[in-house]
Amino acid sequence: MELYEFELSGNCYKVRLMLSLLNLKYESRIVNGPEKEHKSSTFLEMNPFGQVPVLKDNDIVLRDSQAILVYLAKAYGGNDWFSEKPAEAAEIISWLSIAANEVSRGPGALRAHFILGRPINVEEAKAVTTSLLNVLEKQLSEFQWLATNKITIADIAIYPYIALSRQGNVSLSGYKSIREWMSRIQNLPGYIGMSGLTP
C-alpha cells in the first residue's frame, strides 16, 4: 500500500492512524504542497480533485479520508470497525458526514487559519465548533464511543481535528467527556500521534 499525504493534514493523519491500528504496512509518499504537486497531471490521475490523502492498494486507488476509512475497515478490519447492522452502519456514516462537514468547517478551519494562515470567517467557524463540541460532549457523556458500543471508524474520523483543536485556539477544558474519549483512543494498541497533538 502507498499513502499519498501531507504530514500536517488531519485527514491524512486519520488514515495513518487507522493503518496503524490495523497493523497494516504501507509506504508514505509525502506530496509537495508548496510546489503544488497535488495539482500535477500525475496526481490528478489518481484524484481529479487534487486533494490528499490518496491510498493505493495494489490496483485500487482511493481518495477522500472518510472513504479510505470505510475501505480499510471493510477490507482489513472484519466487522470490528464497521458494523454489518443497518442502523449501526447508518449511524457510523452519519458521523463520517459530520467529519466532512461540521468538523471541517469548525475546528478544521480554525486550525488551518491559525497555523497555515488560510482566510476563513473566524466567527462562523467558532460558532460551528462550539455547536459541534456541545453535541459531542452530550453524546460522549452518555456513551463511550460515538456510533456503537465499541470503537468504530466514526471515532477515528472525528478524532484528529478535535484532538488538534488547540492549534485552532479552541480549548477543551470544559469538555470532560470529550477529553476522556480522546484518552481512550490514545490508549488503544497501535495508536500513533502526530505533530501538534498532545495527549
Rank of each mutant, 00 (worst) to 15 (best):
L172W: 04
I156N: 04
G174E: 13
A127W: 03
V122T: 02
V170P: 00
R166L: 04
L136T: 10
T129R: 05
Y175D: 08
A157E: 03
K150I: 10
T129P: 12
L136F: 12
S171Q: 14
S171H: 13
Y175C: 13
I153A: 03
K126S: 10
W145D: 13
W145N: 08
Y161F: 12
I156Y: 06
L140D: 06
P160R: 04
K176V: 14
Q144N: 15
G168F: 02
V128P: 13
Q144M: 14
P160T: 00
L164I: 00
K150C: 10
K176R: 15
Y159N: 02
P160G: 08
I162C: 02
K126N: 05
A125C: 02
R166I: 08
N149C: 15
K176G: 10
E142G: 08
A125K: 09
L132H: 06
E123R: 15
G168L: 07
G168Y: 06
Q139R: 15
I162K: 09
A157I: 07
Q139P: 06
A147G: 05
E142N: 10
Q167S: 02
I151N: 02
A125S: 05
Y159C: 03
K138T: 14
L132Y: 12
E137H: 14
I158A: 04
L164A: 03
T148H: 01
R166M: 09
I151C: 07
V135I: 15
K150T: 13
I158L: 11
T130L: 07
K176Q: 15
I162D: 02
Q139W: 12
T129K: 11
G168E: 00
T148E: 02
N149H: 10
A125V: 04
N134E: 14
N149D: 15
Y161D: 04
Q167R: 06
I153T: 02
T152N: 04
V128L: 05
N169E: 12
A157S: 14
L164C: 05
S141I: 11
L172C: 11
Q167W: 01
V128H: 03
N134M: 13
R166F: 08
Q167P: 00
K176N: 14
V122R: 03
L140Y: 06
T129S: 05
V128E: 10
I162T: 04
N169Y: 09
L164N: 00
N149A: 13
E123D: 09
V128S: 13
A125G: 06
A127V: 09
L132K: 09
N121D: 08
L140G: 06
A154N: 04
I158S: 05
D155W: 08
L172P: 15
L172I: 11
E142D: 11
S165R: 06
V128M: 10
N121T: 03
N169G: 10
W145M: 04
P160K: 00
S165V: 10
V170K: 01
Q144P: 10
Q139I: 11
E124M: 09
L133A: 14
A163I: 01
R166W: 08
S171P: 14
A154M: 00
E137V: 11
K138S: 14
L146C: 09
A154G: 03
L146D: 08
T130D: 11
A125N: 08
S173M: 15
A154S: 04
E137Q: 13
N169K: 11
G174D: 15
T130S: 11
A147Y: 02
Y159Q: 07
A125Q: 03
G168I: 01
Q139S: 12
A125F: 03
S173W: 13
E142Q: 14
T129D: 12
K138Y: 10
T130N: 07
L136C: 07
